[in-house]
């Protein structure tokens, strides 16, 4: 996959996760089957969010606008360009979540919803089962990338607020009670 080659963490993510240019082609090819279903999927998504009392206040009064944004984002997943502009857009989404004070839990829960909701749609609407399997794998990898980029923005804000370096953040995240001693 074409990513900013200065971003070593992203390179590791794509390398280990198997995210490649092939995913772009796979998802672009199935866009035609998914495109008509995206608005209804988005409606269902916001119904679920609205039913959760802790999330509902974050979307109250602006659901229609949020749905439009969400549709654009979902469409972008099948647009076949996951280069630097795509990465920047995901980071911007992360920044927006931070700015409106959406907790990371809600992002993770939303991604979990989409990971559960979309594969059955792909399986049902893509005529070739093998292509559906391939598209599902690509889409799940892409969801993970998006969540990684959004979570990374949360981590950056945390580091900035605490004044800590990425190395210290990693250390604080991995040195727990009873952890084996590390050098």
């Amino acid at each position: 996959m074409h990513v900013d080659h200065h971003d070593r963490n992203l390179e590791i993510f794509c390398q280990v996760g198997g995210l490649s240019r092939e995913d772009q082609a796979v998802l672009t090819a199935v866009h035609q089957y998914i495109h008509p279903l995206i608005p209804s999927l988005t409606d269902r998504f916001y119904e679920v969010l609205g039913e959760e009392p802790e999330i509902a206040p974050y979307i109250a009064g602006r659901v229609d606008q949020l749905k439009k944004t969400h549709i654009v984002w979902l469409e972008s997943l099948f647009a076949g360009d996951y280069g630097i502009e795509f990465i920047k857009r995901q980071e911007k989404i992360g920044e927006t979540h931070v700015r409106v004070r959406v907790p990371p839990l809600f992002v993770a829960a939303s991604m979990a919803f989409l990971r559960g909701a979309l594969p059955p749609v792909l399986a049902a609407k893509i005529p070739d089962p093998a292509e559906a399997v391939s598209a599902t794998a690509s889409l799940l990898r892409l969801f993970d990338l998006c969540q990684y980029l959004i979570d990374r923005k949360y981590a950056e804000v945390l580091m900035d607020n605490l004044g800590i370096s990425p190395a210290l953040l990693t250390r604080l995240q991995t040195v727990g009670r009873g952890s084996p001693h590390q050098g």
């Binding site: 800590i164 210290l168 604080l172 040195v175 009670r177 952890s179 001693h181």
Partner: peptide, 10 residues
């Protein structure tokens, strides 16, 4: 030591 050092630096 590992935990103490991380906490102190933070």
């Amino acid at each position: 030591e590992d935990r103490v050092s991380a906490m102190v630096a933070a």
